[in-house]
Design a protein around this nucleic acid. Structure first.
Lengths: 146, 146
DNA sequence: AATTAAAAAGACATTTTTATCTTTAATTAG
DNA sequence: CTAATTAAAGATAAAAATGTCTTTTTAATT
């Protein structure tokens, strides 16, 4: 469903959020150790997200990634779109160029429903909310069983 | 969502079905022209499906692909699994190895619901049913507008 | 100012997916 | 039996995704 890049990106951002107390920045190395993701590959993804202003970063000693105030309301949908684009949310399920309401492929309506369902879910989930679940212990990003 | 291979495979099989009058076999070339798919690539997919006994084929003059009686009840789910495997239906949405009911990732339950929804849809749709919609004109596989 | 630590950027490598072409095997028609 | 036709199999290639390493830039600390 999601690309590897997207999986790592989501995990990284949720983790950053879960550690996001005022003024704290997290280095890529720390993040990747925690979420068990390839370091340089994940760095690229975070850099791209920083460029798109979904996360913030600073260089230099004590630098790292963090979430600024105006990035607090990021939805999971925004994150997925920033990494994987919107191909998951548009276009025909069978890859037909001409598929439309008036010229539908055989799974058009059902596929549309699934997709809208997915988009709805992803738009209702905020990163803040997901991080909260991790902080509270209801959910986890760690691959190591406690 | 689906791979290109899967998109071509689904389109090809629905098309075969839609033309499946007793004794008629369709060549790869004809199929691909109709569904606008790359010929040799689609041939590989159909060969794999034939090996897995989801479709039938014969070589030689007037040979081609067709659906035999015991293949009539193929579900869309069977087809997707035969081409893309079951990675879409199992495993964590965020790629965590240890994700489970007792150790869930932050989107575990929602993602599970989406996935079950998708699996349900795909298992309810038979190729026969989809082909019928194409035959009746309610749906289409063609990229050319009528 | 010099050193250090970190992200950013760029280059490179590997793997997977997608796609094409060629050769072989099987079957039918003549 | 021979020729023609078609799927099957194999080889190769191109593109995209994934992953790693090196160099550059920026910023803080000493």
């Amino acid at each position: 469903m999601f690309s590897k890049a997207c999986e790592y990106g989501i995990r990284a951002v949720i983790y950053i959020w879960s550690q996001n107390t005022k003024g704290v920045k997290l280095g890529v190395k720390d993040i990747c150790k925690e979420i068990d993701a390839p370091e340089f590959f994940t760095a690229k993804i975070l850099q791209s997200l920083a460029k798109q202003d979904l996360v913030s970063s600073t260089k230099g000693p004590n630098g790292g990634f963090y979430i600024s105030d105006d990035q607090e309301n990021m939805r999971l949908l925004d994150l997925v779109k920033a990494i994987d684009g919107d191909k998951l949310f548009k276009g025909c399920g069978l890859g037909l160029k001409q598929c439309s309401e008036s010229h539908p492929c055989p799974i058009h309506n059902d596929y549309k429903a699934i997709r809208e369902n997915l988009a709805k879910l992803l738009s209702e989930k905020t990163i803040k909310g997901l991080a909260k679940e991790v902080v509270s212990g209801k959910a986890t990003l760690s691959t190591i069983l406690e």
